[in-house]
Write a protein that binds this DNA or RNA. Sequence first.
DNA 1: CTGAAAGCGCTAACAG
DNA 2: CTGTTAGCGCTTTCAG
Lengths: 345, 345
Amino acid sequence: MVKIADVAREAGVSAATVSRVLNGLPTGPEYAERVRAAAERLDYRPNGIARSLRRQTTDVIGLIISSLTSPFFAEVTRGVEDTAQRNGYSVLLCISDEEPKREARNLRVLEQQQIAGLVITPHSARTDVSRFRAARIPLVVVDRPLGGRDDSVTVDSVEGAMAATGHLLAAGWQRPACITGPGDASTARDRLAGYRRALADGSVDKEWVATARYSESGGAAAAAELLDRRDPPDAFFVAGGNLAIGVLEEVTRRGLVFGRDLGMVTFDDAPWAPFVSPPMSVVAQPTYDIGVKAAELLLARLRGERTRVRHEVLSTTLIVRESSKRGSRPARSAGSAKNRTARSS
Amino acid sequence: MVKIADVAREAGVSAATVSRVLNGLPTGPEYAERVRAAAERLDYRPNGIARSLRRQTTDVIGLIISSLTSPFFAEVTRGVEDTAQRNGYSVLLCISDEEPKREARNLRVLEQQQIAGLVITPHSARTDVSRFRAARIPLVVVDRPLGGRDDSVTVDSVEGAMAATGHLLAAGWQRPACITGPGDASTARDRLAGYRRALADGSVDKEWVATARYSESGGAAAAAELLDRRDPPDAFFVAGGNLAIGVLEEVTRRGLVFGRDLGMVTFDDAPWAPFVSPPMSVVAQPTYDIGVKAAELLLARLRGERTRVRHEVLSTTLIVRESSKRGSRPARSAGSAKNRTARSS
DNA sequence: CTGAAAGCGCTAACAG
DNA sequence: CTGTTAGCGCTTTCAG
């Protein structure tokens, strides 16, 4: 491996000068040229580890993400990586899988790797990032706040849930249920709260609520439970994309169809959402931007630009397609669904 | 920051002893206990950077992945990360976005970070990993081979494409088209080859081929081009999940429906594939396992266990749902689609 | 502006 | 088995 001393020798200068040239510090131009040529000739690559040890800081940011299976988190990851890369940072990826133990191990590993900063989707409010705070390693919390002491990027879940549920009501559904995530996820609680507020606004005095892990099977089970009740709902507000797939599964298993037998709106858009039958109405989150924003907050901190804690809360967008419409024969669809709907049965 | 010397002082031993204890090297048990207690008391975390510099190796593996948008690559990533984490390694994630320039920059960065090994989905056969080979940093190539000199994990694309196209023919479609990726992706070429072989086997003497970037818009454009031909195909074999969404888009835009007006099978399964209308027939790849396998090959190398180059080629699975059936009234479906299909038109 | 020298925190060779 | 010492490759004082 060619090291700085080799370049120095080749260029006939000291290692210090090579370092200076390569880091763009002031040097005599003739030296600079000689050094650059030598480095080129030897195909020199600075050893980042040695540099980091000396500088006492790395160009690496850690990312602890709940999952990659869900497009939501995959897009957040993409946003973080893109932004980091664009600013000369690398991303050390850890998937916590929503497991507190894995998350704790991830935190430990990242600390040992001396990451410059951290982006994390904490499992719950119990996630312990105190060592990072103590070591003054900047961190930004994504998706679920963590007590408000750290920078954060979240989405207005209450508003999104209200919009979705309100829309269901407005479309004529009378007994909307809420299928949400586990109680230790603040998103799950907020979406439930938004649902309730919409019910209150619509003067609906009964509620239908099921909670489940944010997974397909969880969604399926919740839907089944709800539909099996003596007094079942006639519509679903679903609090997450993974849940939605499970709900879809259970509902089609029963031969029910959205937009006719049941109404439905779910959090999280997807490229395929327009193509399921019927096209799904969704509350879209600015997923990629969440990642970008998170990385940007972190980078600003790393540059020492900002000192006050900042909480960024982004908005959702309700996209109405077919699944939330009431009794709709395909009628209003953009021509596409023309042929594939039932007569009434 | 508490360092090894602090622990040594606290425990009343030398730094070397602390190091030995923490690394599980033989020491007197009473010392071991004292050291552990001291480390615990001080909440000591070894500095991984310093360790790496000294040991001349890191616990980090690099992953250069084409994209995270596609579930295929997201799952591969998950497989790699999972396996790495389980074996005490971390993953430095780089998204190349299929851009040669970004990929080159990623390679450079990872080299500087002194990664212990690399998993990469190379953009094309022109991807230059020579510096890694020269430095004897193990690498494994995923999805698309790179000249056969490195360990690799790929999928039998030819076989998968043959199965898909053959199935289309067997179902009664007579003019199947192939929508595949760009010519510099070997997967695209292989899938095209498989398609052709199936045509030959079925004695079809004309072919319908369109290539596009592996993206939704590419898929849509390719489908449009094919359908606008004077002599259009009556079925599609689509070479990738992203393409499929675009094809779906274009086809439903035209008011056509799969399983009736057109046949379709696509590479890549997805959780939602059973729920689009009609349910999509697919060639499923063992995505997660690809990642796992890749990481395992790499880890074996890092442990110095193996020396001969190994090419792992995994099989695909054809999953027949509705989109490939000919003129199918729902009839043969497994019960689920019972209600939501057209009567005839 | 340049070079010599120290040192980041850790581990491995060598003595004891 | 333990401590002392050297050194991984780089950057950054400090003199010159």
